[in-house]
Structure formats: C-alpha cells, structure tokens
C-alpha cells in the first residue's frame, strides 16, 4: 500500500516523541487502544496556568498511520486551549493525512487519545 507523503513525513520524522512526568499535576496522560488490536497510543499534554497546552508528547505502538496520527495531534494541540483541543475531530486528522478507509481507525484513536489525556488532566485538577 502506498503511503501519503504526509504520513511518511510524520512516520520518518515523528514530532514530539517522548514522555512527560505523569505525576505532574499539570500533565494529563491518555492511553488508548490495545496491544491485541495492534495499536496503543499514549498522548501526554502539559497545561499551563492559562489553560493552554504548552507541551505534548506521544509514544505509539502501531502501524505507520497510527504513528503519523499521533505525531500530528501533538503538533495540533500545542498552543490550543483544552476546549480547542477537544474540538479536533478524527475526520480532520484523516483528511490531513489522506488516510484510506482501512486506516480511519488510526484517526479515531488519535481523537480518543486527546479526550483521554484531557480527562486525566481534569481529574487531577479536581483532585488537587
């Protein structure tokens, strides 16, 4: 299967690979997917005092499209408020990367990862 250039670019030069301190109260961690399904995505966001995401990191076990989708959302969420980040839809991700139908689930997973990371951050804030 021939990959779109943007997928290849993110795959070969993934942005923001790595981890943030998940104990940090400003950091929200989202982990979605399952090893048995062939993809697991971990997305971390750090939210500053103004409620703006100032850093994002990912690690992904999955196919090239899953890695590219993760890499793309780390770029997109940075500088966005939490609500703006939550407004990112899987279709936008799929469109940006020109994902074929069999790879749409990768974009769904990436959207879920944002939601999961935000939920983690919010639950930490509530608890604090």
């Amino acid at each position: 299967m021939a990959y779109n250039e943007k997928v290849l670019d993110h795959y070969e030069n993934p942005r923001n690979v790595g981890s943030l301190d998940k104990q940090d109260a400003q950091v929200g961690t989202g982990m979605v997917g399952a090893p048995a399904c062939g993809d697991v995505m971990k997305l971390q966001i750090r939210v500053n005092e103004d409620g703006v995401i100032d850093d994002a990191k990912f690690k992904t076990f999955g196919c090239g499209s899953a890695i590219a989708a993760s890499s793309l959302v780390t770029e997109w969420v940075k500088g966005k408020t939490i609500d703006e980040a939550l407004a990112i839809k899987n279709q936008e991700i799929a469109d940006e990367l020109a994902l074929p139908p069999v790879k749409i689930h990768c974009s769904v997973l990436a959207e879920d990862a944002i939601k999961s990371a935000v939920a983690d951050y919010r639950s930490k804030q509530k608890g604090a």
Binding site: V17, V40, M41, K42
Partner: peptide, 16 residues
C-alpha cells in the same frame, strides 16, 4: 523508543 508498551516494560510493568 517510540512504543508506550516498551516504556512500560522498561519501568518494570508487564503490559499484559
């Protein structure tokens, strides 16, 4: 290095 599962294994967590 990019895999969250591998990270867990390094942290001593068995993903299974």
């Amino acid at each position: 290095d990019m895999s969250p599962l591998w990270e867990m294994v390094q942290d001593g967590i068995d993903p299974h």
